[in-house]
Design a protein around this nucleic acid. Structure first.
Lengths: 247, 247
DNA sequence: CAAATAGTGTCTGTTAGACACTATATG
DNA sequence: CATATAGTGTCTAACAGACACTATTTG
């Protein structure tokens, strides 16, 4: 019988028979703090690229991870102690040369979280730090992680044009001027206060927390919370950042 | 010296030391033919899921493939003899249960091509066929390939709202009514002829081939070609299909 | 000329851009 | 009151939706 054939096949299947690439998962975790976009990097304490800075990722654990998302969340937890409210697959990079050890595939995720202190949590990590986009240029980065961060940032820029996904990089309660500043930094251009507020109000994405925040001199700003599902909302019309995407 | 340390490390690195997931690449190749969207499927001649229909993918060949795209194109060529002009990474699916053999990761691509005959090309494939979205429901599909095709179709639907990427599923020269019909099928709703043409004209995405095509009774339609880079163009404003995306 | 399909003219509606205005806080 | 920051009123511009109109082909 055919079913038995497959049973037999599975029993004798040898995974080692074919050379397989290395498989890692690399989360690119962003936050917004002190008027800057920052990414979480760890300093590697083991080879290869020891002492260089890289994304807080690692190998899939076939015993403990049920899915790739599990791996991403586990690595973030283990290496830095954080669990982000937003996690979305970015892109998978795979080729013969990106890792000195072997043909290597890394499944990358973009993650966002409110700013919080983080610390190196396990032996394979010497240090964990929030690194601003400016500082990035100065650090020696492991593998192709610089390129990957570039892709993640570009994707987040796109999202700033047609969604309020970046809000996940803010604390639970935040003001509209804060969110607008974050979008402006992502887009690299100033936005019209009125346009920005109007579309968010009309789509009813936020709810008034009832509280206000006075930063220092000036009218206090209303603190809002994201409504459930607001992260999934996409505006029909983009803000007008040039939108030519590469092929 | 540190460099020597790493050299030593790399020389002794044993890839087999850790269990690694299986890694496959699965292209979802669409075309438009006879007023239907069709996807290229192959009938598997080997286990697992023998005799069932699936995507024309397979394992990365560490010796011959330099990148994941190479694997995608090679598999399409080997199994079906086609090489598509449009290929874009879709998503990577990975979990413990999708493949009976082991924890498995598949890097999926969306590909588009003008309709052409295809044939089964190698031993692991019994048959290769263009399958319409309707027929899909009736076929026994291998692994989670039905779900993957669903994701690819949804992504293509999104692209139909803000780009003319679907044009890659048409022959080199095509008419505007043809392109509009394809978009209507992808979106599952009728479009305003005027709106559709206007945005494409204003963005100067197509060039007049000088030829016309008369289908049978009725004014002949102008045949257009895509200009270089038109596939990368995104309109600032979407056509109004509901645009709530899942989280 | 009728039927069929391609393509246009033009009005309306929605929403982003611009920018001046009002509101509410501190010192 | 001056200054600073939050938030609004309102006009314009761009562009998609609607739909009636003209254009070009076959029989």
């Amino acid at each position: 019988m055919q079913t038995n054939d497959e049973q037999t096949f599975l029993e004798h299947y040898d995974k080692q028979a074919y050379d397989a690439p290395l498989v890692t998962v690399d989360p690119v975790l962003f936050t917004y703090h002190a008027e800057q976009l920052k990414v979480l990097l760890v300093q590697r304490s083991s080879h290869p690229d020891r002492q260089m800075w890289g994304l807080p990722g690692g190998f899939v654990d076939l015993q403990h991870d049920a899915t790739l998302e599990d791996t991403a969340l586990r690595k973030l937890r283990e290496k830095t102690g954080v669990t982000p409210p937003y996690l979305e697959q970015l892109h998978t990079f795979g080729n013969a040369t990106r890792d000195k050890r072997s043909w290597s595939v890394t499944v990358c995720y973009t993650a966002l979280i409110a700013h919080q202190e983080c610390a190196a949590h396990i032996a394979t990590v010497m240090d964990a730090r929030w690194v601003s986009m400016q500082q990035l240029e100065m650090l020696p980065l492991a593998f192709d992680h610089g390129m990957i961060i570039g892709h993640a940032r570009e994707r987040l820029r796109q999202k700033a044009l047609y969604s309020i996904v970046p809000a996940y990089a803010l604390p639970e309660k935040f003001t509209l001027p804060e969110l607008q500043q974050l979008h402006e930094i992502l887009l690299g251009m100033p936005l019209q206060k009125k346009s920005f507020r109007r579309r968010i109000e009309q789509a009813e994405l936020l709810e008034d927390s009832g509280e206000k925040r006075a930063d220092s001199g000036g009218r206090p700003a209303t603190l809002y919370r994201m409504k459930a599902g607001s992260g999934a909302h996409t505006f029909l019309r983009n803000l007008s950042g040039a939108t030519e995407t590469e092929e």
